[in-house]
């Protein structure tokens, strides 16, 4: 099990108030912004930028950067590791 990804799932649920969802409901590949996935919207995307800064010390200055990064827990974890190295 990948600790960073599990941690991200918990942070997603907390930061976005996803009350009816548990970490087990989120696959590493679940599409965060698709209606077939978590169905997040544009405000959630901005809140994910806050999440990256708050928990991982990473600043995103252009919301467009978020598009690829926030596709899934996998892509987020990959981005965090890249930025931290």
């Amino acid at each position: 099990m990948d600790d960073l990804k599990e941690e991200l799932k918990r942070q997603l649920i907390e930061q976005l108030n996803l009350e009816e969802i548990t970490p087990a409901d989120i696959d590493d590949n679940t599409l965060l912004f698709s209606d077939k996935g978590l169905g997040l919207d544009s405000i959630d995307a901005l809140e994910l930028i806050v999440l990256l800064e708050k928990y991982h010390g990473i600043q995103v200055t252009k919301p467009e950067e978020g598009k690829e990064v926030f596709r899934s827990v996998n892509s987020m974890a990959e981005y965090i590791r890249k930025r931290q190295n």
């Binding site: 976005l16 108030n17 405000i43 959630d44 901005l46 809140e47 806050v50 800064e53 708050k54």
Partner: peptide, 10 residues
């Protein structure tokens, strides 16, 4: 206490 929250602001 941290960062302005967009989801609160709206």
């Amino acid at each position: 206490n941290g960062t302005p929250s967009p989801s609160l602001f709206v």
